[in-house]
Design a protein around this nucleic acid. Sequence first.
DNA 1: CCATTTGCCTATCTACTAGTAGATACCCTG
DNA 2: CAGGGTATCTACTAGTAGATAGGCAAATGG
Lengths: 198, 198
Amino acid sequence: MPIMTNPTSTADKILQCARSLIIAGGYNGFSYADIAEVVGIRKASIHHHFPSKVDLVRTLLERYREEAEAGIAALERYNPDPADQLRAYANYWAACIADPTNAFCVCALLASQIPVLPPEIVLEVRAHFRMLSAWLTAVLDKGAAQGVFVLAGTARSEAEGFVAGVHGAMLSARAYGDDKVFKVVTDSLMEKLMPNRS
Amino acid sequence: MPIMTNPTSTADKILQCARSLIIAGGYNGFSYADIAEVVGIRKASIHHHFPSKVDLVRTLLERYREEAEAGIAALERYNPDPADQLRAYANYWAACIADPTNAFCVCALLASQIPVLPPEIVLEVRAHFRMLSAWLTAVLDKGAAQGVFVLAGTARSEAEGFVAGVHGAMLSARAYGDDKVFKVVTDSLMEKLMPNRS
DNA sequence: CCATTTGCCTATCTACTAGTAGATACCCTG
DNA sequence: CAGGGTATCTACTAGTAGATAGGCAAATGG
């Protein structure tokens, strides 16, 4: 196991750059040449770290999913209350949307292109959606048991509605070129779960 | 104005084919070669009808938006009740999702790639979103006045939430590879607007 | 009936795609 | 110091991207 010479290695830079490029335009919206220019190396050097584009994106997604799970775990530690957990999740994305290089969930964006995606990539995207809806289902279940949420349907169906609402809100924010609509939609989602609050 | 020789002209076939290809993989997910193969002509012939890719997609979107407006007008004629209008809209998309070549709103898909889209295309996409949310706002307003809907916020914010929910549901259906989740989410959206029904 | 337009063709172009081959330099370990 | 691994480079491949030029045939219309 060699010493990691740089605090952020070249491979990390490539992954980070590719993530931003996917967020901007999806799987076919970037090329090795684009990454090479941003990172400041040659195309061939990227192939040294990631033999194929599928390898690159699969690695990127594995890392993204790890970060997402770690982020959710941290979020749960800092917010014991289910309502606060949902708020923290929505606020996280509200902050991301302000940053053009981070203004979309990588998996949500790739999901829109699933019919033209390599199957390995599809599996990662699908796994992220499952993780997300499983977590939200658990949060809503817990909140309903504690009386903080009033669920109109099953926790699962409400969770799928929440996921869809958040992703759709990202899409609308992008379509209008206006971040505010994201907050409008997610606030509305939250409020519907807690009808007996001011 | 020349006679339209074919019931569906070559130009129409090109537009229809390009629409399906965009629905599958977005703006950079298809090429002139792809269209040529499906339609049965050469790449150069496509340039005869649509000099550039931007021309092709812009025309396609203009037509899509006309169809959408006509569809909504028809939907309003057949369904005087605002609740039925929303149901008809959701059912329309539920039917589309069953057909792989039609399983996404072209504008919603393109919206996800706005940062890498030519500006002319962005304008069309944005206009569609505005039309959609304006229509839904009017439907919700009317329904609230008639007492069929109970709105938690403004008609506008509820309309944006509905648009986001529907688009997010398309995304989830694609991510899971399961059409049912679309109906689950849209049923949940409808139910939240009509809490005092069974 | 002939000039124009329409629609499609072949052939070609330039730019870019992912990916490969082979060389060079560096650093660590034995 | 020798060998192997790592990281990068230049130079290249085959294939595809959107787009262009020019030709040919059929339909259109004065």
